[in-house]
Write a protein that binds this DNA or RNA. Structure first.
Length: 433
RNA sequence: GCGACUGUAGCUCAGUUGGUUAGAGUGCCAGGUUGUGGCCCUGGAGGUCGUCGGUUCAAGUCCGAUCAGUCGCCCCA
């Protein structure tokens, strides 16, 4: 094989390999369609940003010390000497685009959604790839916890309508940067005497990102952290009120959640609300999606004071979750409605078929035929494999009489229809939903 | 970046303690059968056994290296 795809990437195909049914374009499109429809229902409008951004956009917004920035970005210098990055996440580019196009000049609320590719140079495994797709939303211009609840509700509704039965919503509040800094110090003070007995990993995090110490699986670390202060103890009255208001909203919406004080997330820009939705059947990767509030991000990027929040849902992980549950999920229809079968091989018949097909297609009916001169039996087999609903059989006799035989593939009923009335006949027949 | 496991037709896989020309199912192509199929029957194409090297009279099988994949650590979607 002369070429192969780069490591930890994948191809999505019209017919997915049996081992990986999730690599099917019909399934991808079905999921994307559901997301678009849902975003519209919630009042979000689409935004598309380039895959390439100046690298600095991410180092500034996500944070220099985070793993994503320090070791996972796809970087290259272009011919103009600029340092570019393939975007590792979707939020910063949206913020950049909004600033650059003047959306923040008006005081309006902006509710945006996107479906886009992110790139991270990581070692792959189940549910983790170097290019992955996120379906996400961003909402700017309000600190009302009702908006937090709406964003979370949108994500949860997506999982429900997809048909994923068991997801768990984890929420936490990171408070303001000042509150977080105070907590960080308190946590350090608490941990310091025990540090020698803790894992190497915890000792590393102690220096670089102490909050991440909480998010450990190591038994001895968990024991040490048992009596540690939690971030919630360090929230001021205002932050506390926001978090409680959110919980009430979620309760009023009937959305169950658990408060997870270890939920910290990997971006520095989060404030107040953070959340993650966990599923099952994903191997070591259990997060289907996550997000949070970032009230300081726009300013950090050089824009006005503009609160915001959003989430990203991993398309691959949702597809994988459905697969492990044995659920097909929504699938875009790629099957033809009609398949023209030629009984005979004269040039006249061939031309009549070409014209008939074009007429169907102009009328908006998905239609196809064989071009390999197969006999009638194999043409029909082909129609069958493609899942066509109707056969339009055209032979010398029909051509002479100006008719076709129209055969319903499921009922096997066949009737004669004038060529001029094929469209009407198909339109009046029951069609696939 | 670290670790474990796995590489044999397009796909899913067999292949015995190392032994002659590497198999099956499925898919593909053709014929039976270009005027009514979704079956069935017959035939065919398709493999440098991931790659390179080593051990041996003999390697798909054993050893080493390498490449790739998968899963896990880490991180997150």
């Amino acid at each position: 094989m002369p070429y192969q795809r780069l490591p930890y990437l994948y191809d999505v195909l019209p017919d997915a390999p049996p081992r990986d049914p999730w690599l099917s374009t019909a399934r991808w499109r079905g999921m994307e369609n559901l997301f678009r429809e849902l975003a519209r229902r919630f009042g979000y409008r689409e935004i598309r940003t380039p895959i390439l951004e100046p690298a600095e956009l991410f180092t500034r917004s996500i944070g220099e010390a985070t793993d994503i920035v320090s070791k996972e970005m796809f970087l290259f210098t272009d011919r103009g000497g600029r340092l570019n990055a393939l975007k590792p996440e979707g939020t910063a580019p949206v913020v950049r685009a909004c600033m650059e196009n003047g959306l923040f000049g008006e005081p309006a609320l902006h509710k945006l959604y996107y479906i886009g590719q992110n790139f991270r140079y990581e070692r792959g495994q189940k549910g983790r790839y170097r290019q992955h797709q996120q379906m996400g939303v961003e909402a700017f211009g309000s600190t009302d916890p009702a908006l937090d609840a709406e964003v979370i509700a949108l994500a949860m509704t997506f999982f429900t309508e997809l048909g994923i039965p068991e997801t768990t919503l984890h929420i936490n509040s990171l408070g303001t940067p000042a509150e977080r800094a105070e907590f960080r110090q308190a946590l350090r003070d608490y941990v310091k005497p025990h540090l020698a007995a803790m894992s190497e990993e915890a000792r590393m995090r102690f220096e670089v990102n102490p909050l991440r110490m909480l998010d450990t699986k190591a038994e001895r670390d968990l024991q040490m952290l048992e009596g540690a202060p939690t971030l919630l103890d360090y929230l001021g009255a205002e932050s506390r009120n926001l978090f409680e208001a959110l919980q009430q909203m979620l309760g009023a919406l009937g959305i169950p959640f658990v408060i997870n004080t270890a939920l910290v997330r990997g971006f520095d820009y989060y404030t107040h609300t953070v959340f993650e939705i966990k599923g099952s059947g994903l191997g070591a990767q259990d997060a289907l999606g996550g997000g949070g509030r970032y009230d300081g991000l726009v300013q950090e990027c050089g824009g006005p004071a503009m609160p915001g929040l959003g989430f990203g849902i991993g398309t691959e992980r949702c597809l994988l979750a459905l697969e492990s549950l044995g659920i097909r999920g929504p699938e875009a229809d790629e099957k033809p409605v009609a398949f023209v079968v030629l009984a005979g091989s004269t040039p006249e018949l061939n031309q009549a078929a070409v014209q008939l097909l074009m007429k169907l297609r102009r009328a908006g009916i998905a239609a196809d035929r064989d071009y390999q001169g197969k006999n009638m039996r194999r043409q029909m087999k082909r129609a069958d494999d493609l899942g066509a609903q109707y056969l339009l059989i055209l032979g010398e006799d029909e051509l002479a009489a100006g008719i076709v035989q129209m055969k319903n593939q499921s009922s096997r009923e066949q009737k004669t229809v004038a060529i001029g009335e094929v469209i009407e006949a198909l339109m009046s027949e029951p069609r696939r939903e």
